[in-house]
């Protein structure tokens, strides 16, 4: 009898705080597996955001820093410039990366900082309790747009991969999902590539992951099809998965 899946060494053996059915745990595992496979755990510095992933600095088995809301790419810039031999990853949610931290996101890409960004897009503010995010879909209900996002009042969702791929400094931008097994496999490959790019000095790489938030979407946490269906039927229409930029 052979065990097929060891827990990655880059993730500490602790229980994570995420809600049932949340995609963060999946992406944490994928990042850790990639760190193991590329043998970069010892030189990785993890930048944790403000938002649901705020405690990620305690989960990964590597040096870590937790910074102000949205400033991950700036912190990562400082670390990478000061310690060019380290591998720096900034893990961010949609409010963090696409709203309060938009300037840091865009400019770190424009500077082609040799860093890796993992962007969890679940179209909602999670930690604060389900407010409208910059990526909330038109018609999607949130606690700050209880009748659904109305473009006349709230504008339109922001497509980060499309936006960043227009910048010369962006070297790799891919959008994936974790709502099914095929998506998880693709997400891992994308994350691996985003880290390999940093190892090889290729530059700014971002993976946007469409992820479930059953709690704040107001769907059942114990019936996974409700959340996965939302990604499958609604989110991918606005945020089509795919490779948006891949500069060798």
């Amino acid at each position: 009898m052979q065990l097929l899946n060891e827990r990655p060494k880059s993730l500490l053996d602790v229980s994570m705080h995420y809600c049932p059915g949340c995609g963060h745990g999946i992406v944490h595992r994928l990042v850790a597996e990639v760190m193991d496979e590329l043998n970069i755990r010892e030189k990785t510095i993890f930048v944790a955001p403000v938002g649901c992933a705020v405690f990620a600095d305690t989960y990964f088995n590597c040096d870590a820093i937790q910074g102000p809301h949205g400033r991950g790419p700036a912190i990562a810039t400082g670390i990478k410039r000061a310690k060019p031999d380290s591998i720096v990853v900034s893990y961010q949610g949609d409010g963090d990366l696409a709203s309060i931290g938009m300037a840091e996101t865009v400019h770190s890409a424009a500077r082609n900082e040799n860093i890796t960004i993992i962007f969890i897009n679940n179209a909602i503010y999670g930690m604060t309790g389900g407010q409208m995010a910059p990526t909330t879909l038109i018609g999607q209900k949130a606690t700050t747009c209880i009748y659904g996002r109305d473009p006349k009042v709230n504008g339109y969702p922001i497509r980060i991969c499309e936006l960043l791929s227009s910048l010369e400094g962006t070297r790799y931008a891919e959008r994936t999902t974790v709502h099914n097994v095929a998506g998880v496999v693709k997400t891992k490959n994308a994350i691996k590539k985003a880290f390999q790019n940093q190892v090889n000095g290729i530059g700014f790489s971002i993976v946007e992951v469409l992820s479930m938030c059953p709690t704040n979407w107001g769907v059942r946490a114990d019936n996974p099809s409700e959340a996965t269906k939302y990604i499958n039927d609604q989110m991918v229409k606005i945020f089509p998965p795919g490779v948006y930029k891949d500069v060798k």
Partner: peptide, 10 residues
């Protein structure tokens, strides 16, 4: 804002 956070990182 970005500058001070770069300093924080470095």
């Amino acid at each position: 804002v970005a500058a001070i956070n770069m300093i924080f990182g470095a």
